[in-house]
Each structure stands twice: as structure tokens, then as C-alpha cells.
Amino acid sequence: MATGSDAELPVIAVVGPTGSGKSDLGVELALALQGEVINADSMQFYRGMDIGTAKISESERRGVPHHLLDILDVAEEASVSRFQAECRQIIADIHGRGKRAIVVGGSGLYVRAALDVLEFPGTDPALRRRLEKELVAVGLTGMQARLRAVDPVSAGRLGDARRVVRALEVHELTGRPFSSFMPSREYFQPAVQIGLDVPRDVLHQRLATRVHAMVDAGLLDEVRALDARGLRRGKTASRALGYAQFLRVLDGASDVDAAAEETIVATRQFARRQLTWFRADPRINWLPWDDRQLVARAAKLC
């Protein structure tokens, strides 16, 4: 347990794959430690994306304040640099009131942005538009070749067009390779990370059960309502697990059962990527998700 002034209290982060119980543990820790939760799940920023993101309900929050939920419309693009600034301001406010800040989420880069020394280069809309036009002209392979000439590290790591364009934009703006902005494992301020460890077979079954429950709870109707509010225009929200698959149902290109199975497969793949990301961080304290003493053991680390 931390000692000393409020400024020395470590930020608590609850991380792990989707479906591992992070939201529930965040609430339990907040109740045990007089804390407040800060959302670090990029898809839970969006108003109305409730069922498909398993967003914690008001009743499930049990009176614990939750920050950075429902802050964007679905047509808006999420920004990790904006999140970093807002999250750190909220952390300072929570600690300044003598409470504990508990960051909860499985979006790895957002968690790192909250906790680690991490610099974000700016953007230039005109430059971005020019690069996107060049992408259309020369294709992804041509843009990757350009990136390889100035930033081979990023070229070897990035495979999708949006990120390749971003890497080229950063290089033109700053004269530095995009890879030079990658975070080191250095906390911005004291922090404790708690990871929830779920056996793969158990997690796979939990994710399948959860997707079917989302369908029964009205996921298709939620997607239909969000489509009317501009979901397809949202570069971030439209790619969310479940939402992309069920938009195809609205288009007549799929049916509910097929969309559910596609969502289960995509969610399991996403969980695997999350685990790869988080397992690479040796600072995370992993605890069994179903430990009967989970809250007490997690609180002891904080």
C-alpha cells in the first residue's frame, strides 16, 4: 500500500483481455480503496455503443464515479493524444481529492498513454489528405516502400494503410521516424498494473456466451440506431467488434447467426492480440480472474 502524500499514490490500472472481468474488478477496487474509475476502452468512449461494448451500466457501477465514458458521438474519431491529456487531468483531480485513480480497459495503447512517458506527434490535415490521395495512386505497397526508405522499423511493423499513412505523415512533419515515438516502459508517475489471467478455453467460452447475450439483448437494434446517427462515417466506431459485422446484416449481406459467429471469431482474435500486448509488459501483476480472494490480493498490490 502506498504511503506519503496524495501525490505519491500510484495510479492503479486493471488490464487484460476482453471478457476477463476488468470492469467488475475496477468497481470492487474503487469500493475497497475509495477510488474512481477512468475508462481506457476506446470503444466505450462512444455514446450509444452500450450492448456491443459490454459497457458497465449505472447499476453495475454501484455508485462509483466513472470517467471518460460516453464522451464521443459515433461519427467522431477517437484520439489517443486527447485521451492522454484528459486522463492525466482526471488522475490529478482524483488524487487531489484524496481518492484513488483506477484506469480500467483493454485498449493497450490507451493504457500506455495513461501510464507511461509517451509523446504524441501532431497532425496536419492537409498533409494527411495529400498522403491519402497518394495512397490511392500508388497503393499500399508503394506507400510501404516509401516508409521503408525512411523508417524501416515502422515499415516492418505496420501493415494497414491508415497506419502507414500516419507514419509517413509523422516523418514529414517532424523529420523523425514514427518508430522513435514508441513508448518506453517508463511510468509517467507511480503506477501499479493488475492483469486478469483467464485460461484460453474458459475465455473462449465466455466470449461466445457474451456475444450471444449481446444479440439477445438487442445488438442489431443498437447498430441500426447508431447507423442512423452516422456510425458508418466514424473511422473508429465503425470498426468496432460486432458493429462492423452487424452493419452487414442491415445491408442484407449477412444474417444474424452468421454475424454472431463472425463476431465471436473476431473477438477471440482480438483477445489474443490483447494478451500478446499485455504479456510483453513485465510490470503487470497477473492474478487469476476467478480467485476468491481476487479483490483483497489486488488491493494489497495497490
Rank of each mutant, 00 (worst) to 15 (best):
A2D: 14
S5T: 14
E8C: 10
V15Y: 08
P17K: 05
T18E: 11
K22M: 12
S23C: 05
D24H: 13
V27Y: 07
Q34V: 01
E36R: 02
I38C: 06
G48Y: 10
M49R: 03
P65M: 07
D70S: 00
L72P: 06
V74I: 12
A75Y: 14
S81M: 06
A85P: 00
A85L: 10
Q89V: 05
I90G: 05
R97Q: 15
A101V: 04
V111D: 05
A114I: 01
L118Q: 10
G122E: 12
P125Q: 08
P125H: 06
A126R: 08
R130V: 11
L131M: 09
K133V: 14
K133W: 13
V136R: 13
V136N: 12
V138C: 13
G139R: 02
G139N: 07
R146F: 01
V150A: 02
D151K: 02
S154Y: 07
R163Q: 15
E169F: 03
V170K: 02
H171K: 07
H171W: 14
T174N: 12
G175T: 12
G175P: 09
F178I: 00
F181G: 13
P183M: 04
Y187H: 12
D197C: 03
H204D: 15
H212Q: 10
A213H: 09
R224W: 02
A225M: 09
L231A: 05
G234V: 02
T236H: 08
A237E: 07
S238P: 04
R239H: 15
A240G: 13
L241H: 06
L241M: 08
G242N: 05
Y243D: 02
A244K: 14
Q245K: 01
Q245N: 08
A258V: 15
A258N: 11
A266D: 15
A271V: 02
L275R: 10
D281S: 00
N285A: 11
W286I: 00
L287E: 01
P288V: 09
P288T: 12
D291L: 07
V295R: 15
V295D: 04
A298Q: 07
